[in-house]
């Protein structure tokens, strides 16, 4: 097996440089690559384009890279929980492209599957469709319009998994899976940080969500905060 292990986040991101495009896994603050985000803040790379479903909150997740103004452009589906984000966007300091969530996921998938475009009905007749090719297909007994959307081309994908082995095979846990598997497939170079790193042979091949072929660098992350955005409970 090919060994994909690097020592830590700093080594994993060492060749991420200014003006690069990054896919960043997670949904809200759930399943985000906390260690790599901190390492990017420390490294101080600038003018990044980040593709991620959300933009974190003011003081956590991608919000940390927004505070330090390292992000030039965000491509996301929902950015409602971040005041600094809103301020930078309204002041024109931050470029923002909002795209439907399913389109975001499927554009990652297309990249991982080696398909340059997909057609989706999401956004037909809305401002998302402006400048895009529209085609009509007769499919499943329904004649509908679809938008052509391109596979992402990103320099790096940064994902977070629960368990991984030294060959880069990944297993995600619960809804922290979200965008991580398809982003892992879509990076030219994919970095995975994991809570638990094990030797090859310890993971059941039948249980692997992302095969190591898609993962170029893997390391065991430290001190996961796993912040909860909205704690909702009921009484016993």
């Amino acid at each position: 097996m090919i060994n994909r292990v690097v020592q830590n986040a700093d080594e994993a991101i060492k060749d991420i440089s200014d003006n690069m495009t990054l896919l960043v896994g997670g949904f809200g603050l759930c399943g985000i690559p906390e260690n790599c985000i901190s390492a990017l803040v420390k490294k101080g790379v600038k003018n990044l384009t980040c593709i991620s479903n959300n933009a974190g909150v003011d003081d956590f997740g991608l919000g940390l890279l927004l505070q330090t103004k390292q992000i030039k452009k965000m491509i996301s589906s929902y950015v409602g929980e971040n005041a600094e984000f809103e301020r930078q966007m309204l002041n024109g300091e931050l470029e923002v492209e909002l795209i439907p969530q399913g389109t975001l996921a499927t554009r990652c998938l297309a990249a991982g599957y080696g398909m340059p475009v997909i057609y989706t009905p999401a956004g037909v007749g809305t401002e998302v469709a402006i400048g895009k090719e529209v085609r009509t297909f007769d499919y499943n007994g329904e004649v509908k319009e679809y938008l052509m959307e391109h596979a992402f081309e990103a320099d790096f994908a940064i994902v977070k998994a629960w368990k991984g082995d030294t060959a880069g095979n990944l297993i995600f846990r619960s809804t922290a899976r979200n965008f991580n598997p398809m982003m892992a497939m879509a990076g030219k170079i994919t970095i995975a940080e994991v809570e638990e790193l094990v030797e090859v042979g310890e993971l059941d091949p039948d249980h692997i969500h992302t095969p190591g072929i898609y993962v170029h660098r893997i390391f065991k992350g430290n001190h996961y905060e796993k912040r909860i955005e909205q704690t909702t409970v009921r009484k016993k």
Binding site: L29, C30, S174, I228, T232
Partner: peptide, 18 residues
């Protein structure tokens, strides 16, 4: 929603609630 003290940061809905 989970019982108090049983929330799991890895398990949320689309509204980001546990």
């Amino acid at each position: 929603f989970p019982f108090e003290g049983e929330e799991d940061a890895d398990l949320i809905n689309a509204g980001k609630q546990t």
